[in-house]
Design a binder for these strands. Structure first.
Lengths: 344, 344
DNA sequence: CTGAAAGCGCTTACAG
DNA sequence: CTGAAAGCGCTTACAG
């Protein structure tokens, strides 16, 4: 109990004024030393007195005061509609890696895959972020943002005009997938899309459908369904759709994400549908679990960690005022064929 | 190109002074209205003039200025050593849900499952967080934090003396798992632990080992191995350990996380080890993919979203100065038996 | 009910 | 090389 109460007793904050007093200098000098801007501006003697005082007192520059004075904080905001997808965890890891310790990563998550609103944007900007990383945005959303802070887009195909971007070439993998299914003898397929109108989902779907059509793999309109990115929701959607698919000769289903595909696999097992014999299943993302699912899942591999890492690097360049040598980067995707489309 | 350049031209910030000028009042009045503290302090007339000016100008209270004046920001920092685990994505979702829109969630991720250092702590506190959510911390780490801001611990068994906490009763599920394996006829098991000395992992291991020992299920010291929480690392560990296990009669392996278990399943398949006939495999977490893995994975189910949600609620209570009616909450775990331990 | 003023902690021209 | 001072945008006693 005693220790519980301690949290009400805030330790007094160590300020630059306290350091200055101890070192016998002005706060201006403390600021210069604390920020490493001493070059030709502070005497060696003062540098060392201030450093000593800083470590004796345990002084850390207050970010709030600093941000107000500078006009910008050290916060980088990652805006994304989709935390629940494990793909995301790897993107975060990549961002953290390249951003380093100077910047703090703030997560802005919108509800249930919704696109963020203008009012959300204002609140975010009120934090005076050093930079913004925006995943899978809509064009309208970007209008306001691009003027406000250094900005890098992740997975935002078609929006290159707004800001530097790191994209995934999902179309390439989608076409590979269509060829794989067509050459495996399928002639009728279904498609399970996400419910967010995210550009990457559209691209995945369109590239697949186009290549499929050119190969005589038919995906009729009523065999394109949509569900949230959620194993359970996808499973329920499969249960509802399967009788029709079966009756109408669908022998393959492509899912916008592996998570959707897991739902297919799960429900197919419940209903005794044999995969891949009766139905071939494939997804996008190639999540770590796709290698161990039952059956293992054919998927278009997307490099999540490199995506985050590269976006972080680019943003860092912008924040530090560097010119980006390559403002738009595209990372490759490729098909990984596994048991869910090929019987072993 | 033209739009790319726009990001250098920052739109001028709308300040309280601009709103005040437009509404013909002082900035003090603007502040009162913007923060909804008008009760008996601002005339209806002024309230509406200010509101009008705010919406006409699109004014948003600057969080930096506000935080400096108040002495605290609206940022809630979530400190956790383990973003890569998908379990984490659900914890975040739960936190976001209960925290609402007033607070911004900042993610502090340490490298590769390391425990955060004292210097990291100071940097975090320099942001003047409104509250702190700390997952799976070490005791030393908490010493400094508990005095600095409202704090709630997640998954921090044994550290209840530092702060209010939300824990998972992993021991219960661990014991259930031991009973399940013993009653299935296993007499020798291996254990795959994480490499972070996280308390929950220790608890999982100890509860399992203790119950196993009491039931005659032997886990000898050399059959306890450790790897990072990573499918690939776990797979490699399995490859190295399996010959010994097989020789020494191990017929079951329990993994500290499902992610470890996926590695076992993956490598077992590569090596042609039949699961569960030759080796039963089980994990902790019950990630969404455990239901669809091959074979599906027996796992101790841990409620990730409720964990985050409850922790957010508790923290909110603290930040708003409420007394917590129940400072320490424990959520239940339970065993979910699937194909990886029971042949179907 | 209202506003002038102090203060939050820092950074940065500026004058010396 | 150094420090006094202004200023970042806001909130909050305080006096009226």
């Amino acid at each position: 109990m005693e220790s519980l109460d301690r949290r009400h007793v805030r330790a007094p904050r160590v300020t630059a004024a306290m350091v200055a007093a101890r070192a016998g200098v002005s706060t201006a000098t403390v600021s210069l030393v604390a920020n490493g801007k001493t070059q030709g501006r502070v005497s060696d003697d003062n540098i060392s007195r201030v450093r000593t005082a800083i470590s004796e007192l345990g002084y850390v520059v207050d970010s709030i005061g600093s941000s107000l004075a500078r006009g910008v904080s050290s916060i980088v905001i990652l805006v994304t509609p989709d935390v629940s997808n494990p793909f995301f965890a790897n993107v975060i890891a990549g961002v953290r890696e390249s951003l380093g310790a100077e910047y703090q990563l703030l997560l802005s998550v919108t509800d249930a895959g919704e696109s963020p609103q203008a009012s959300d944007v204002r609140k975010l900007l009120a934090l005076r972020p050093a930079g913004l990383l925006v995943g899978a945005p809509s064009a309208g959303f970007l209008e306001d943002l691009s003027a406000a802070a250094p900005l890098v887009l992740l997975d935002a195909p078609g929006l290159e005009s707004f800001a530097p971007s790191v994209n995934l070439d999902v179309a390439q993998g989608a076409r590979e997938l269509a060829r794989h299914l067509a050459s495996s003898g399928h002639t009728r397929a279904a498609y399970v899309d996400g419910i967010t109108g995210t550009a990457t989902f559209q691209l995945r779907r369109e590239a697949f459908l186009e290549e499929a059509a050119s190969l005589g793999l038919v995906v009729s309109q009523e065999h394109i369904i949509r569900t949230a990115i959620d194993v359970g929701a996808a499973a329920a959607a499969f249960a509802a759709a399967w009788p029709g698919w079966q009756r109408e000769g669908v022998t393959a289903v492509v899912c916008g994400t592996d998570t959707h595909a897991y739902g297919m696999l799960q429900e197919a097992r419940v209903e005794g549908v044999r995969i891949p014999e009766e139905l071939a299943v494939a997804g996008f993302d190639d999540l770590p679990y796709s290698a161990t699912s039952n059956p293992s899942l054919t998927s278009v591999h997307l490099p999540a960690t490199p995506l985050g890492r590269k976006a972080g690097e680019q943003l860092r360049g912008l924040m530090e005022g560097r010119e980006l040598s390559e403002p738009h980067v595209t990372l490759e995707s490729s098909l990984v064929v596994r048991g869910s489309t090929v019987s072993s």
